[in-house]
Amino acid sequence: MDGSVPKNWPPPRPGPIAGEAGASDDALLAQIGAGDVAAWEAIIDRHLPAVSRYAAYVLGDNAQGEDVAQETFIRLMKKAQTWEANGSGLKSWLFRVARNLCIDYKRKKRPEPIENAEFIADPIDRHATDRRIDIANTMERALAALPEPQQTAIVLVHYEGFSGSEAANLLDISVEAVESLLARARRSLRQALQPDARELLGER
């Protein structure tokens, strides 16, 4: 380590979620309650990708993630007519519902992973020619092996642009607890990637 600041630092801000601009979520939900299918489509385009991605990351399975995303939006459809703006926002509501569904899925489908479980790399990945794909596969498996609270924290903050306090609000914990979850998650990911750390993380 030479102590110099990385050239790509600070990195570009994560892109906004699709459909960020335009009518507010509350306004769209009011229109949905009045039978406006275009508003429903706008809500889907705005939030479905993030919810689907979150569920897929947490469950480690795209198909199950899509099942969770679909169920989340079916529940939103039922909720739309009685939706009341309460300050926490639709985005938080969607992730809360999706998170609960993911927890149910995990409970039914497979045992809770052991914290800091050693990541076993798939030997097939070692032969991947595309380094980025190799890293992505490794990271996906490492992420899926994390305990659910750590998964949720890292996905919300790193991928979906939640602030620490927003994630704390969604998880019903303190900001300090969120930071602790994030730090443990990142430590676990680093350990999981350790066998390939030199290649994947650029460590010397």
């Binding site: 600041v5 630092w9 990708p49 689907s52 991605r53």
Partner: peptide
């Protein structure tokens, strides 16, 4: 910061998939 940046890069390698 440099160590964290390397892990960020690995995290960012995960594709931001769109719903089917």
């Amino acid at each position: 910061l440099k160590e964290a940046s390397a892990l960020d890069t690995a995290l960012n390698a995960l594709p931001m998939s769109e719903p089917s």
